Simulated scan of single mutants.
Amino acid sequence: MRSDPDLAASAARGHEADFAELVRRHQARVRGMARRLTGSVSDGDDIAQATFLKAWQKIGSYAGGTFSAWVCTICWREYLQARRKQKIEIEFDETAEIIPFERTQSDEVGDQMDLNRALEKLSEAQRVCVVLCVASGLSHREAAEATGWPLGTIKSHVTRGVAALRKHLESSHVA
């Protein structure tokens, strides 16, 4: 099995099949990261697609290190670009009837929903750091390189974010 740096070097020479192999290896991580950052499956998938398109365009600039960290850095930047372009407009319909939510999903789906709700309750910085380091598996150093934030900041946001998640999930009886 060829290493990621070997595949990236070959892809930089125009071998699309080698880039496709890199996408196959890393798409789940990138898609999961993007979905958690955006809080939306469709928006996350759009960011993941933009990430790999950008990675293909910039594959010649990959200079070693872990390919995973390199592509997650691109994902982080694509997420920031999408946020900058986003104009959030919220309209309230004062006459709308509030319909109570009846839970009919399986426990596993419910647990996933609880986790997503818990992630939404974190500060944005904590959520980003937890998604990068815990959910996407980047090291603290790789997350610091991806975001441009100091290493100590990443570590403290991860520690506080994980503690807040545990507290919230314990109170939801999920943990």
Score class of each variant (00 low, 15 high):
64 G>Y: 09
25 R>K: 13
22 L>F: 01
90 I>Q: 11
167 K>F: 03
52 F>R: 02
60 G>E: 04
96 A>D: 07
29 R>N: 01
30 V>E: 10
152 G>V: 03
159 T>A: 12
78 E>I: 01
12 A>Q: 08
60 G>F: 07
147 T>F: 14
92 F>R: 13
70 W>R: 05
169 L>G: 14
92 F>N: 08
142 E>M: 00
76 W>H: 13
162 V>H: 00
128 V>R: 11
50 A>W: 04
101 F>A: 09
122 L>C: 07
158 V>R: 09
116 N>Q: 13
51 T>N: 08
85 K>P: 00
114 D>W: 09
98 I>K: 10
77 R>A: 08
172 S>P: 00
41 V>D: 06
139 S>M: 00
99 I>N: 05
71 V>F: 08
91 E>K: 12
109 V>F: 10
155 K>D: 01
18 D>W: 04
47 I>D: 12
6 D>F: 07
163 A>H: 10
169 L>F: 14
170 E>Q: 10
143 A>V: 06
74 I>K: 06
93 D>I: 11
86 Q>F: 13
125 A>P: 02
149 W>T: 04
38 T>S: 15
71 V>G: 09
4 D>H: 05
93 D>R: 12
65 G>C: 10
102 E>S: 07
175 A>L: 15
144 A>C: 06
23 V>I: 14
1 M>N: 11
35 R>Y: 04
30 V>S: 08
119 L>P: 13
113 M>D: 15
66 T>E: 10
16 E>F: 07
137 G>M: 02
128 V>I: 14
103 R>V: 10
67 F>D: 03
105 Q>S: 14
129 C>G: 02
124 E>A: 10
131 V>C: 08
110 G>H: 02
115 L>W: 10
109 V>A: 14
50 A>S: 11
110 G>A: 09
12 A>R: 09
6 D>L: 10
123 S>N: 06
118 A>T: 11
155 K>L: 03
87 K>G: 03
128 V>C: 05
174 V>I: 14
36 R>P: 00
169 L>T: 13
146 A>F: 03
129 C>W: 06
78 E>T: 11
45 D>P: 03
157 H>W: 05
43 D>F: 01
66 T>Y: 09
35 R>Q: 14
116 N>P: 00
106 S>Q: 11
28 A>N: 12
165 L>V: 04
34 A>H: 02
86 Q>K: 14
144 A>R: 03
39 G>E: 05
109 V>T: 13
58 K>F: 00
127 R>K: 15
108 E>M: 08
90 I>V: 15
118 A>W: 10
90 I>A: 13
40 S>F: 11
124 E>T: 12
167 K>I: 01
81 Q>G: 05
86 Q>R: 15
27 Q>P: 02
128 V>Q: 10
17 A>H: 07
141 R>M: 01
111 D>A: 12
153 T>I: 01
